[in-house]
Simulated scan of single mutants.
Amino acid sequence: MTEYERSRTMPALPEHVFDQAANVDQLDNWLPEALHVHAEELPAVTVHEDRTDEDTSALLRAEKDQMRLEWGTREQGSYAGWLQVAGIGSGASEVTVHLSFFDESHDPGEKPVNDALDRSLERLEGQVRMRVDNVAG
């Protein structure tokens, strides 16, 4: 099993960050560009990966009271992940994303995964900033 984890501080309350991250209709706006999520009957989702042009059955659960998203593949159990939002005071939050690859053949490697996680967190922060700026202004 291989695991990866990245964190980023965001200038918004944890509830605002979690609401953006957990919005199923907007997941494509912050997930890696090559992944597209189609919600079925939650927690069931289908994830399309552009790189392989394949659809994968997955699960996505949002635990608002814990400020946590959890996901993973349904049938093969080769991949899982979670996103955790925590308040750090002064109206800011820390977002941590963790990925676990149980099947090494699904692991793209350390640099591509860390780069994708960093870009995803950056894109999520951009969404959060737009929302917070729109609410404030």
Rank of each mutant, 00 (worst) to 15 (best):
S105I: 08
H38K: 09
E94L: 00
K64V: 14
V113I: 12
L27K: 10
A80E: 14
D103K: 08
G89I: 11
H16S: 14
H106T: 10
Y4S: 12
E5A: 04
R119G: 06
G81F: 05
F101V: 13
V85R: 03
L83E: 04
F18Y: 13
T96E: 10
N29P: 09
L27P: 15
L83T: 04
V97K: 11
V37D: 00
V113D: 12
L27Q: 14
Q127S: 04
E3H: 09
L83S: 05
H106C: 01
M130S: 12
P43G: 10
E94V: 06
L27G: 10
S78P: 08
P11N: 13
P43C: 07
D50A: 12
D28L: 05
P112Q: 00
P43S: 07
E94D: 09
S93M: 08
E33G: 11
A80T: 13
E33C: 07
E41M: 02
R68P: 07
T46P: 05
D107Y: 00
E70H: 06
F102Q: 06
L13Y: 10
D55G: 00
R68I: 10
G89T: 11
V37R: 00
H36Q: 01
H38P: 06
T2K: 03
S105H: 03
A21T: 05
V95N: 07
Q127K: 05
R68D: 05
G81W: 07
G89R: 09
A21E: 06
P32F: 15
V85F: 06
L60I: 06
D103Y: 07
